[in-house]
Design a protein around this nucleic acid. Sequence first.
DNA 1: TCTTGTGAAGGTCTTCACAGCG
DNA 2: CGCTGTGAAGACCTTCACAAGA
Lengths: 221, 221
Amino acid sequence: MALQPDNTPSQPSRVPDVVIDRLPQYVRILHALMDSGVEVVSSHQLGRRLQVTPAQIRKDLSYLGRFGKQGRGYDVRYLASELKQILGLNRRWNVCLIGVGRLGRAILSYPGFAPEGFEIVAAFDTDDRVVGATLGELKVQPMDELGETVERLNISIGVIAVPSSVAQEVMKLLTECGVEAILNYAPVYPHVPERVRVRNVDPVLSLQSMTYYLSHRNNHG
Amino acid sequence: MALQPDNTPSQPSRVPDVVIDRLPQYVRILHALMDSGVEVVSSHQLGRRLQVTPAQIRKDLSYLGRFGKQGRGYDVRYLASELKQILGLNRRWNVCLIGVGRLGRAILSYPGFAPEGFEIVAAFDTDDRVVGATLGELKVQPMDELGETVERLNISIGVIAVPSSVAQEVMKLLTECGVEAILNYAPVYPHVPERVRVRNVDPVLSLQSMTYYLSHRNNHG
DNA sequence: TCTTGTGAAGGTCTTCACAGCG
DNA sequence: CGCTGTGAAGACCTTCACAAGA
């Protein structure tokens, strides 16, 4: 979370992790600019949209290549395409969901994933009462089918929406199946092998750090 | 967020923002330890649970006070209590929700906020078809009642669950009412006055940075 | 002239290593 | 002896400032 403290460390990388974390935002803004018919953008304009300095943007992009034209700026379409290529966003990613309780169902019906290429293609639960049920287009499977399904459907990403008490165990099962990227909605920070990336979605933690500033602001009101 | 890159900058602060962002995690672990009957913990043990170095924990805590006992460690109950005091977690915070569509309803029914002291006490929407409806214990109000309600119920925190297209506008309304902490579920990064803190909940962004590592791992499979 | 790309400088955060105390 | 608290060192990240190209 950076800032939400929200990533798994790595070492043998030329591009700093913090740069990689910013790239998807760049892509998002570039798409918005494309939709507005903007064809060329400077680091200064991009920086204003993203609330970062122009220097930061130029430096970040310089880790990845030389995309700009001096005196002119960046071609919006070209830069977006290159960044998506680098991030691996020009393809579709199959995702499995673990846990189809209240939260899991909300995630299943969230319409923001599929348009970005993240397709939830399998759902699992341990509860016999929901295994076998059909949610949307998916049939809820028992956990012991995880390994086979991950392999068959070439699933690279797991989404954890189970109670905290079993999150560590689920994380272990996922990594043992070869899943190397996990989006974790459980409010715990399980241990994972070094090769596995974890991002935590933890709104309570976000609230709990903001209250510090609310409590310590100078003028009350 | 940081990491997840997920905070609003500040400057005139003795305690680094990155430290504040970690404190809620410390509190969470300390509570878990209390529940397990652990009474004293060392920075080394805490670090193992949190996957950070012992030195980091000692340094972080040293910004806020001297809570430990040499040769022994930290009293779990005392440290938890002090950190909660510092973060402003020993009280209740009233929260308003803007947007009661699919996402807003999921947030309303999420059971994780209230036990941590975050109470959603008002909900707003612009859509005439839902204004006036009752969701759980709340009656959905029209946006023009925002200012009066924020004042009357002493609301300090706003949660944004509206479409991206109106998020900036809603952010403006909230800040004009004096709300200084915002949890934003819309996939945009609106501009806010410097005094206002924003945390973004953006699972798509998290996925989009993880795919970089999936795409660039050495052995494929 | 305008803007990129980039070494160098500056700033921030993390880790080290040890004095000091129980 | 074990562990905290903390200056100092080191690593990392951001910003500056300018050469060079369109």
